[in-house]
């Protein structure tokens, strides 16, 4: 009995010792939560780490829970934040965190170069390297003319059209924008028509891209970065930016913010400035994902594709006033998908 008690005590001491050592060994790391695709973001972040000498601990998210998963995690950790810098791949989650007072304003040189439409007035967050919401379609199946899938009549057969589950990611931004512009009733009716038409709801934009690229579906809503993945792989796909009823496009920036209570605020500021710099925007623009720079960059350093996207991005609908629409739209979607 005495032996067993000693063993338990020894085990407890060992566990606590390992935890203490762990925390001590990682005390100086700048903790980054990153919802952007790891395959692109890691190179950028490791570049910063190498240059600045600041060690980073990066937490990436999985495709299905992208952005909302990390936003939720930051909310859950609000009493003891471990994240210093949040690199989100969309805006709405950041607006939610801002509204709850979880972001630490910072207006550095990076913030200064981003246009006012893509940053919080108080410096809570700033946008960079955007992508467009697009209709991706399979040219081998339906030719080269972009289909008008948004304007399909009620009762249309949508069994060959794909859309990501709108509960998270940029599809949630898309739905929120429609909620804001159309009102809840019209969006609900539209969504009901789509479901009745047999639209294929998949787990993420990448799955939409795959379904269209493989010809299982003929068209769907996705983002420019996913479209370019398929195009670079030689798939028979083309895309057209989604145009809202007012003719505007949906341009969704990456966003970055320092979390209130961050333990490494000075290092966090350095990283935020780095991410908002021309260098990072160019690196992301010239990667396979072709992100659209939001700050000024020399045009000759961009590919013709990105220059064309930048043109469409200038027609982007403002997203910074969608806070309340997001709440209402998300509440409806939750009642639909997780009743």
């Amino acid at each position: 009995m005495r032996n067993r008690a000693a063993l338990i005590a020894l085990g407890t001491v060992l566990v606590l010792g390992v935890c203490w050592w762990w925390r001590a060994a990682h005390r100086n790391e700048l903790v980054v939560y990153c919802a952007h695709d790891a395959i692109y973001a890691e190179k950028i972040l490791r570049g910063f780490e190498k240059r600045s000498g600041i060690p980073l601990a990066i937490r990436f998210d999985t495709e299905a829970t992208k952005s909302l998963g990390l936003t939720e995690l930051i909310l859950r950790e609000k009493d003891a934040p471990r994240c210093d810098v949040f690199w989100n791949n969309e805006l709405l989650g950041m607006l939610d965190l801002q509204e709850r007072g979880l972001l630490q304003p910072y207006q550095g040189p990076g913030y200064a170069r981003i246009p006012a439409a893509f940053k919080a007035a108080d410096g809570s967050w700033a946008g960079f390297a955007a992508r467009l919401r697009v209709v991706i379609y399979n040219t081998a199946k339906i030719g080269k003319t972009p289909p008008n899938i948004t304007g399909l009549l009620p009762g249309s057969d949508l069994s060959r059209v794909a859309i990501a589950k709108p509960l998270y990611g940029t599809t949630l931004t898309h739905y929120t924008l429609l909620w804001h512009l159309w009102g809840g009733d019209k969006l609900k009716a539209w969504h009901a028509d789509w479901r009745r038409g047999g639209v294929k709801e998949v787990d993420g934009n990448a799955a939409v891209k795959d379904a269209v690229a493989e010809g299982a579906c003929y068209a769907g809503f996705s983002d420019t970065d996913d479209f370019f993945e398929a195009k670079d792989d030689g798939k028979p796909v083309a895309m057209a930016p989604v145009r809202l009823d007012n003719g505007r496009t949906i341009c969704i920036p990456n966003t970055v913010a320092i979390i209130r209570g961050a333990k490494h605020e000075r290092a966090a500021r350095q990283l935020v400035d780095f991410l908002l710099s021309e260098e990072t925007e160019l690196a992301l623009a010239n990667s396979r994902s072709r992100q659209i720079p939001l700050g000024p960059v020399p045009a000759d350093k961009l590919s013709p594709e990105v220059r064309e996207l930048a043109q469409a991005a200038r027609d982007g609908e403002s997203l910074s006033s969608l806070g309340s629409a997001r709440k209402e739209c998300l509440a409806w979607l939750k009642s639909l998908y997780a009743p």
Partner: peptide
């Protein structure tokens, strides 16, 4: 692992899941 792994010490399947969506 995807929910509880300490930052910077993530098991391999979290990363593979993340990468798998590129096809």
């Amino acid at each position: 692992s995807s929910i509880l792994a300490p930052t910077g010490f993530t098991p391999v399947f979290v990363r593979l899941h993340n990468l798998a969506h590129y096809g």
